[in-house]
């Protein structure tokens, strides 16, 4: 199966698809939240729509001595990074940008999130937001290195950094089967750069919403939508690099990718209900002392397998 690059005119469609899947994730989250609140499951399904209507009708806020340009860059950055991430993911036979270094590109875009979240926290000139921004960086230093090595594993196995090749290399066996550690670390890192679930401390309740604390109206919508979009982009990349991308029986490749992305996304959303937030300073030790050696070992195993097979 070869991957062809579509013309730039399809970019809005890709963006709309990303937002649609992200909205579905938000719906699921709303439904689950409604269930824990003792409401009928269906009553939460409209959450993203209602929240969008609410936030678009709300006034934006500016704070005293805010660094507005940087704040706006940060707020817009999350959604932008998510869009750039999915640009390299092959959607069945098509992709927006068929980069030879797709895996590294994804990694670079997730680093852009560092800047975006920190700027969103720095901009409003508010202690809680700033602490949220710093927490994100502290947390990012914990998850980023394991994530880089986790991304190395499928690249090594496929012998290429191009995502099309990574998908093609999984025609027999999905990578998740023989690199479970890399996959687990990758999923944790997705939660990390989406400020989600157990790694959601930068936007946590202990700082009254952290980087979100001063955001209202469209700003808050962009940040929240950005988080869901990043989660979605992460799930789409995970489905591509570990879950076999478009491979599967009967259904067309693009539908398989959509199904796998939705499944991984649903798991990530559901996990959030089950876990409390980890304090960022507690994360560093397990990330560097447990996750990093394990994922290095994983890369070693993958490399040995590749060498032996060759």
């Amino acid at each position: 199966m070869t991957v062809t690059e579509v013309s730039a005119g399809w970019v809005p469609l890709a963006a709309a698809l990303l937002l649609a899947v992200a909205a579905a994730a938000a719906s699921l989250e709303g439904a689950l939240a409604a269930r824990s609140a003792g409401q009928p499951l269906g009553s939460g399904l409209l959450t993203p729509v209602a929240e969008t209507a609410r936030l678009f009708g709300q006034r934006r806020r500016t704070t005293v001595a805010a660094d507005l340009p940087l704040q706006r860059i940060g707020i817009a950055g999350l959604l932008t990074a998510a869009l750039l991430m999915v640009a390299v993911v092959p959607f069945g036979r098509w992709t927006v940008a068929d980069l030879t270094v797709g895996v590294v590109w994804f990694n670079a875009m997730d680093v852009l999130v560092w800047a975006a979240v920190w700027l969103a926290g720095w901009g409003p000139n508010s202690a809680h937001a700033l602490v949220g921004g710093y927490r994100f960086l502290a947390q990012a230093l914990s998850y980023e290195l394991p994530l880089m090595f986790a991304l190395t594993a499928p690249a090594v196995a496929a012998g290429s950094l191009r995502l099309g090749d990574v998908v093609a290399a999984q025609s027999g066996l999905w990578f998740v089967v023989w690199m479970p550690v890399a996959f687990a670390v990758f999923c944790a890192a997705v939660a990390g750069f989406s400020v989600w679930g157990p790694l959601g401390a930068p936007a946590g309740a202990t700082t009254a919403g952290g980087v979100l604390v001063e955001a209202a109206g469209v700003d808050r919508w962009l940040l929240s939508a950005g988080r869901y979009a990043l989660l979605t982009a992460g799930a789409a990349f995970g489905a591509t690099a570990f879950l076999g991308g478009g491979h599967g029986p009967l259904l067309p490749a693009w539908l398989w990718l959509l199904v796998k992305t939705a499944a991984l996304l649903a798991v990530l959303v559901a996990l959030r209900r089950r876990l409390p937030v980890i304090r960022p300073e507690q994360l560093a030790a397990p990330a560097w002392l447990v996750a990093l050696p394990l994922v290095l070992l994983q890369v070693l195993v993958v490399s040995v397998v590749v060498v032996v097979q060759a």
């Binding site: 009553s43 609410r54 806020r61 809680h128 009254a208 919403g209 001063e214 209202a216």
Partner: peptide, 16 residues
């Protein structure tokens, strides 16, 4: 707030 399907705000900027 819960039975109406509303939610509690995290901060003043979040609240209606």
């Amino acid at each position: 707030v819960r039975t109406r399907g509303w939610r509690l705000a995290d901060s003043p900027a979040d609240a209606d």
